[in-house]
Design a binder for these strands. Structure first.
Length: 851
RNA sequence: GCCGGAGUGGCGGAAUGGCAGACGCAACGGUCUUAAACACCGUAGGGCUAUGCCCGUGCGGGUUCGAGUCCCGCCUCCGGCACCA
């Protein structure tokens, strides 16, 4: 049902814009690689392509049945070779630009899916697909250098027209930019002289294992000398608190740990601690509630501002993959460090002037104070504010070559290789002589081989397809092996919107002119579950393609709308829970139009909503009523002639507005006003507000008013018309003008309803004498009939409504006041009082203040 | 803990600072029907000393002639992030 809502919304907008004369590209595509079909294949041994194509056929049929106006000639399926050829082609463009690279790193491994996962696919330490706890595994994998784009991904939020604030916030948090300084801490020599060990374990001036994030921030900080480790760089957001750094911590995985403790009495204990930390699961280790633990290494670092030695600990609350995997600990002003210092009896120094409520009677800190304040106990920097000190301390150390300003991001590079069959093969071969070689463009696509065993066994099932893996090197013609990993399916979906513009081109992935004409996407609709993954990856792709000169814009989706989910029986619909409402069944029972209208009538499109079996009945009844209203009126001859004429006029692009205002009776005018008000409201609700529920409400009101007017025409006891615009409750007379007004109102009702209920709309339209409603211009409200000629105003005395007054729509304020004061319900409150203030809000109310 | 969002009848929800509860569901009464279903007409926030009046949009204050809406302080729920130095 979620899909039904999504596509119906898109369809209402597409139809609406088409009526307004726009060229609309409303396409459909399938993100078809991935585990759904692959798991079926593993179970049955039949190829995943079979299940994929079957599923596509089903959804195709459902969408066609719903009457969604999709341009099927542009259909895109990411698992077909004509599409993934270009996914591979784009991978190679990334590769040649240095944005796709291979490295060995600890990665997230899902033991159940038997594949690695991107950071974004790990939720609470578990696999987002199957909820299995994720394990850390050291593997060589392919990455996209998304961290190079961290800054632009943040800046370009400005280039978006309308995105939900929360999606922007989620991405911002995920990128996690923080500013501060990289600071170098010298390591004090071992006691009794630092006899350099024979083979230093750590000698690399290479970037830390976390990858790209910190590459760009290395600045002027000197890399450690090859050979003996003599210093460690830390990232801190609080260089102002350096004087309070009383100890130093390395992550258990830090490459320096082994070397530091070698041969010391502490070596055994440290190694035991590190081994234990590695064995702890990610979820457990990252729990905030877990007590802080750590172990002293026996070594000391030199605080660069005080020159004093501070003990180096290894503690698992320091994460290897953020910053440099090492931190300076300032227990006075960091809660975590405070907890650690208390447990291990380490000194706590106040260096930011701290409010009394953080201290005991003797002035000792009872808790870390992370807030703002003036520096104390910080030598020459005493008296500076936090903000000033951050700059001054960093500059001072920078001049000595011991620090520099730095920016850090939480965002990591995007791990794109997967050890699965059903994905686009990574187009790389490994040659004994030439090494890693990209597959030449003219040899694309690298087709998936036909295999029989799809089960993952810790490596890609492709690896077992010897006839496929063994190939020849494109450079030297010698023996070579294919990369057997496939790409994350989010790679496929990061560029599909571009393909819509050139779906049939087999010489390019997309045509530059075509993408620049159609894109960026004017209106994108999706669930919030894509807030980070798909939407951030697509933004990244677009920026890379822009840099490559392949597209002329930097953001893919100008306007984003995140639709709410549909719940049933209190939970998200899911086959495993058995609480599924089948679109097919609903369409069979109520028809496509009722299903379409109901999913939009349930509530605001962006909110979650509960499917109600009675709710759809109500909408179904409404559509039945509209049907009978129009067909009955036709049967009674009330629409004859008039409707035919207006139908053809509309088709020709002109509006039927030939009503002579002076000749209208009150009920006639009243219904005309209602019809025009509803035209204005529906236009605004669809075009500007995305409030389909209130648009439908307004059409229901129009239908109710038409009923009321009709009831009197045919002699029944009319229901009082509900509209504020309605003054007289009498119905329309069966005069030519009365009939014309009725025809006009019904015709508007049908036209406004068509984007929501296209089948009903088209059928009624033809019966009324029109043709091709789908292509007719959108109705325009007639200015003359937007306001009733008399209006009813509430009259307040001291803020309470005491009576109502009916006045001409254009009455002068003075006349309105005079009339208001004479109302019996008002006069009695004015009697004997002094009038101190009079307010007239035109068209709204009158407010009198008395004493 | 931090960052978002939301609290309105029995229910889904409506309301550019201007008559709270539109529209719909469920409910109740009626018409039609042998009967039921369908359909149609009508009633419906709570209360009272009922032709009138009082109370009412999570709680407490404030601004305003007037607050569901704006401001301040809380409470609750939902979502995201969470030892990110």
């Amino acid at each position: 049902m979620g899909h039904v809502k999504n596509y119906t919304m898109g369809d209402v907008i597409a139809r609406f814009r088409r009526h307004q004369g726009r060229r609309v590209l409303h396409p459909m595509g399938y993100d078809a690689f991935g585990l759904n079909s692959e798991n079926m294949a593993i179970k049955t041994g039949e190829p995943p392509a079979k299940f994929t194509e079957e599923a596509i056929a089903t959804i195709n049929r459902q969408l066609r049945r719903l009457g969604v106006s999709i341009d099927w000639t542009r259909e895109v399926v990411t698992s077909r070779p004509e599409y993934y050829k270009w996914t591979q082609w784009l991978f190679l463009r990334f590769y040649k630009k240095g944005l796709a690279y291979k490295k060995e790193a600890p990665v997230n491994w899902c033991p159940s899916c038997q594949t690695v996962l991107a950071n974004e696919q790990v939720v609470d330490g578990a696999c987002e697909r199957c909820d299995s706890p994720v394990e850390a595994k050291k593997l060589t994998q392919w990455f996209f250098r998304i961290t190079d784009y961290a800054e632009r991904l943040l800046e370009d939020f400005d280039k978006l027209e309308s995105w939900p604030e929360r999606v922007v916030t989620m991405q911002r948090n995920w990128i996690g930019r923080s500013t501060g300084a990289d600071v170098v801490f010298e390591i004090a020599p071992r006691e009794g002289g630092d006899a350099a060990p024979a083979t230093p374990a750590w000698s690399a001036p290479s970037p830390p294992a976390s990858g790209g994030a910190s590459d760009s921030t290395a600045g002027a900080v000197a890399p450690p000398l090859p050979g003996t480790p003599t210093n460690v760089t830390v990232f801190t957001t609080r260089p102002d608190t350096l004087f309070g750094a009383t100890f130093f911590i390395l992550a258990p995985e830090h490459p320096l740990v082994d070397e530091l403790v070698r041969g010391l009495p502490q070596e055994e204990e440290v190694k035991r601690y590190v081994a234990k930390a590695m064995a702890t699961s990610a979820i457990e280790r990252s729990s905030v509630e877990k007590e802080k633990t750590g172990v002293f290494t026996g070594r000391f670092a030199i605080n660069p501002v005080t020159g004093g030695p501070i003990p180096i600990y290894v503690a698992d609350y320091v994460l290897m993959d953020y910053g440099t995997g090492a931190v300076m600990a300032v227990p006075g002003h960091d809660e975590r460090d405070f907890a650690f210092a208390q447990k291990y009896g380490l000194p706590i120094v106040e260096v930011i002037d701290t409010p009394a409520e953080f201290k005991d009677a003797e002035g000792r800190l009872l808790a870390a104070y992370p807030g703002d304040g003036v520096l104390v106990n910080s030598g020459r920097f005493n008296g500076l504010s936090k903000a000033e000190a951050i700059v001054k301390v960093t500059e001072w150390l920078r001049d000595q070559g011991k620090a520099d300003f730095a920016v850090n991001y939480k965002l990591r590079d995007w791990l794109v290789s997967r050890q699965r069959y059903w994905g686009a093969p990574i187009p790389i071969v490994y040659c004994e002589k030439c090494g890693e070689v990209p597959v030449p463009d003219d040899q694309l696509p690298v087709l998936l081989p036909e295999i029989t065993d799809y089960a993952p066994k810790g490596k890609s099932p492709l690896a077992a397809a010897e006839h496929w893996v063994n190939t020849t090197c494109p450079v030297c013609g010698g023996p070579a092996r294919r990369e057997s990993d496939t790409m994350d399916t989010f790679v496929d979906s990061s560029w599909y919107y571009l393909r819509y513009t050139s779906a049939h081109r087999d010489d390019v992935p997309f045509d530059r002119e075509a993408v620049d004409y159609w894109l960026p996407v004017d209106q994108y609709i999706g669930g919030v579950e894509h807030a980070i993954l798909h939407l951030m990856y697509s933004r990244f792709f677009t920026k890379v393609l822009y840099d490559l000169g392949l597209v002329g814009f930097e953001e893919p989706f100008k306007n984003l709308f995140t639709q709410g989910m549909i719940y049933y029986q209190g939970a998200k619909m899911s086959k495993s829970k058995g609480n599924v409402v089948s679109p097919d069944e609903m369409v069979a029972k109520y028809g496509a139009d009722a299903v379409r209208c109901y999913v939009l009538f349930m509530g605001p499109a962006e909110s979650d909503a509960e499917w109600s079996d009675q709710g759809i009945e109500g909408v179904y009844r409404f559509l039945g009523r509209v049907w009978r209203q129009v067909t009955d009126a036709l049967d009674d001859g009330l629409l004859s002639g008039v409707a035919q004429r207006s139908g053809s006029e509309v088709a020709a692009g002109s509006e039927p507005a030939g009503f002579d205002e002076a000749a209208l009776t009150a009920p006639e005018r009243s219904l005309l006003v209602k019809a025009n008000q509803v035209v204005a409201k529906v236009t605004q609700d669809i075009g500007e507000r995305f409030r389909f529920n209130t648009a439908l409400s307004a059409i229901m009101e129009l239908s109710n008013d038409i009923s009321a007017a009709r009831a009197a025409t045919s002699g029944g006891a009319g229901k009082g018309a509900s509209s504020v615009a309605t003054v007289a409750s009498a119905g329309l007379a069966a005069t030519p003008t009365g009939k014309a007004v009725l025809a006009y109102a019904m015709q508007m009702m049908v036209r406004l309803l068509e984007p929501f209920a296209p089948h009903l709309g088209a059928e009624l339209w033809e019966r009324m004498g029109g043709t091709d409603l789908w292509d007719a211009p959108w109705p325009k409200a007639d200015e003359r009939f937007l306001q009733a000629d008399t209006i009813e105003l509430a009259v307040q005395v001291n803020g309470k409504v005491r009576d109502r007054v009916v006045v001409p729509q254009d009455a002068a304020d003075a006349d309105v006041l005079a009339a208001a004061k004479q109302l019996p319900g008002v006069a009695k409150y004015l009697d004997g009082m002094t009038l101190v203030k009079e307010v007239v809000v035109p068209g709204r109310l009158v407010s009198l203040v008395v004493k």
